[in-house]
């Protein structure tokens, strides 16, 4: 009996010690990890969209609560004015969810750029949405308050040949982003003042 109690006590103490240590370290590194993930996963897309801005959009970011979800917005400063935000939308592709970044100019509500961040599309076909600049460039200048569609569906985006599902998924993602934008525009406009 004593032996069993000893086992239980030792294991419990050890586990709780381990749990405490991990919680402490996780708390300490969480912010840093989030920043690293932004830099290496979403960073390239964000930089691409906000090309030519004079600040570091990954540092200049803010969060807005949208229902249960907290969304991150990255601010781009052009000509000394903080008038552009980049944020994430989600679309459904051929191989699952696709994350994409959309940059919007809040002065004229126009999309200034789009880039796919995470995807699991077929390499060489659907993955072109991320690698071939021609496709994302079509989104530049579209109105950020209207849904966006591929040509077969009555929109104005040329689908990637052989990857209609992916193209459609990207459009759904952009539409998702525009809806977020419409919903949160007042808060975005308010928060972005801080960066001016």
């Amino acid at each position: 009996m004593r032996e069993i109690i000893k086992m239980i006590v030792v294991l419990t103490v050890l586990s709780s010690f381990s749990g405490g240590l991990l919680a402490a370290i996780r708390g300490g590194t969480m912010e840093k990890i989030e920043y690293q993930q932004l830099v290496f996963v979403k960073g390239p897309a964000i930089r691409n969209i906000l090309e030519g801005c004079s600040n570091d959009p990954i540092v200049d970011r803010f969060k807005i609560k949208d229902g249960d979800i907290e969304r991150s917005f990255f601010v781009g400063i052009f000509d000394g004015k903080a008038n552009t935000v980049a944020f994430e939308g989600v679309g459904k592709g051929f191989g699952g969810d696709m994350g994409l970044m959309v940059g919007v100019n809040i002065d004229d509500d126009k999309i200034i750029g789009m880039g796919v961040t995470t995807h699991s599309e077929t390499p060489g076909i659907g993955s072109k949405a991320q690698t071939d600049p021609k496709f994302p460039n079509q989104f530049k200048g579209l109105a950020a308050i209207e849904p966006c569609k591929v040509k077969p569906d009555g929109g104005e985006i040329d689908a990637i040949s052989g990857a209609t599902v992916t193209s459609r998924g990207v459009c759904v993602g952009v539409t998702d982003a525009t809806e977020i934008y419409k919903r949160l525009k007042p808060q975005i406009a308010e928060k972005i003042q801080e960066f001016k």
């Binding site: 991990l22 590194t29 690293q36 290496f40």
Partner: peptide, 12 residues
Amino acid sequence: IVVELLMQAYAY
């Protein structure tokens, strides 16, 4: 896990 967290934070 400590190593994993540290590596994520400093050598992503």
